[in-house]
Design a protein around this nucleic acid. Sequence first.
DNA 1: TCCATTTGACCGCC
DNA 2: GGCGGTCAAATGGA
Length: 359
Amino acid sequence: METCMDWEMKPLINELTQGKLLVNQLRFHLNNSSSSSGELIIEEILASLNKALMMLSNCGSARDSSLLQATTPPPPPPPLVPMSGTSESPRSAIESPGSDESDRRDMFKKRKTLPRWTEHVRVCSGTGLEGPLEDGYSWRKYGQKDILGAKYPRGYYRCTHRNVQGCLATKQVQRSDEDPSVFDVTYRGRHTCVQASHVVTTSQSANNKAEVQGNHNKQEQEKPKQAQEILLNFKTGLKVKTEDLDGRDLTSSSFSFPSTPIECTKPENHIFSSLSLDNNFMGSFSPSFISPTTSESNYFSPCRVNNIGPNFQTSDSDHADIISAATSCTNSPILDIHFSLDSLEFDPNFPFDTSGFFN
DNA sequence: TCCATTTGACCGCC
DNA sequence: GGCGGTCAAATGGA
């Protein structure tokens, strides 16, 4: 069986390369918009992408499946991992009719080895609703428990596709005692499922790629068009806020896209609302960013950002893997997105398919 | 009827 | 034995 590293190395590199391409397109766009400081950010993004690419080419198969182990503190591991044929099958789905006792014991053992990481998510004020967080995946609540010492109960969610696709990803949502608007979301396991929206977008992407491969000249002609579409989609909801960067107030220089579709302004439309381009984003979001129909979709909009330190570096603290929160995105027609590509650690196990994101 | 949520009970770990 | 995590029956909504 191939190592997880191998399984989508090429697509990953392709996607990163495409990311570079898109950033260049973005740069072009920004140049036209005479946003000089946006250029600075783009340079950083490009540098980060290059760095990631270099890391990928260097690490190669050096990295092993140890990343699947629950390590402390875990670099925010991406939840997406192809585990087709994995031994980790949910009890209810793929279990063999063996002894329930041993199965249950196995379940606990597996649980311990699942990667685990935490995000701090601040919900956007305005909805006043309480509920699970929309993060691009379909979650189904399977339990809630009062936790000792915690004011608020902890909600337990698992992937909706657990039974169908054997996806073992779970998350726990715990409202912070100190700040009720902050939720600690602990993810466990990685998504092995293919979200419906993801399928659509990736297939579209695949179609585009097939088309491109079929006709190279056509590719040259269509790429700008494609990229433009991508850019259009990209800019519909994306704004990079940089005021937190190392004390540099770059707010004025942050690049933002003026034409925000009305959909993005609606609080009930959270396609981009939980977008965060950090490590966790790489893992926990369906690249399509299209929220599947889920009970949690309309509750509120979590605004997740990375802890952006100097030069987009995450801090060395325990919170390196913790997503702090933006204070608000509800009232902004353009959702703020903080991201740190510099801190990306591409888990070889993670099927980083940005086609959905950039499409 | 199907699906998601709720909630009490159960089980393993510490 | 207590606590955290999960299961599964009951319940409700679409």
